[in-house]
């Protein structure tokens, strides 16, 4: 065991870790930040997505030691300073972008990274970017709608033609 430090959600934190400790396990068991979910634990489902130095990664597929001294943002770091939901999180609630909620932390972290890269993505761009985040409840339509709404685009006609 080694003492491992990094900056998580703006605070410098440390906990014990082994060489084989995954970043997802370090966040959940080491730091008690259980908002990061582990779904498949094989790098497929995206529930564990966090940002490392500003970029989304699958935390179940990264060794914690490899992110020593990095800046990590988890879902716990996404709300506004006063604790209210961020625009993106609020949009997930307003547009029913979640049902069971298990995939939601990863969805929000990936969607936030997308909006950082591309502030007004098209529906196709959103679907393509979220390819590595699997949801088994919503059928994705309301997630896409939430991300579009959070980017300030009109979503009133989204999906109407298909219905």
């Amino acid at each position: 065991m080694t003492r491992l430090s990094m900056k998580v959600n703006g605070r410098t934190v440390s906990a014990e870790a082994e060489g084989r400790t995954l970043l997802s396990a370090f966040l959940r068991q080491g730091l008690g930040l259980t908002g990061t979910h582990v779904g498949c634990d094989t790098g497929q489902c995206g529930a564990c997505v966090v940002h490392v130095d500003g970029k989304p990664v699958k935390s179940c597929n990264v060794l914690a030691m490899d992110t020593a001294d990095a800046e990590v943002t988890t879902i716990e770091g996404m709300a506004n300073a006063d604790g209210s939901l961020s625009v993106l999180q609020q949009a997930f609630q307003d547009h029913h972008g979640l049902q069971c909620g298990f995939c939601t932390p990863g969805m929000v972290m990936s969607a936030a990274a997308l909006l950082e890269e591309n502030p007004t993505p098209s529906e196709a761009e959103i679907r393509h970017y979220l390819e590595g985040n699997i949801c088994r409840c919503t059928g994705y339509h309301n997630i896409v709608k939430a991300v579009m709404a959070a980017s300030g685009q009109d979503v009133s006609q989204l999906g109407v033609a298909a219905e």
């Binding site: 995206g46 997505v49 970029k55 989304p56 990274a113 970017y129 590595g132």
Partner: peptide
């Protein structure tokens, strides 16, 4: 290759 999160690593 893969998805955005995989491509970052």
């Amino acid at each position: 290759i893969g998805d955005p999160a995989v491509r970052n690593r």
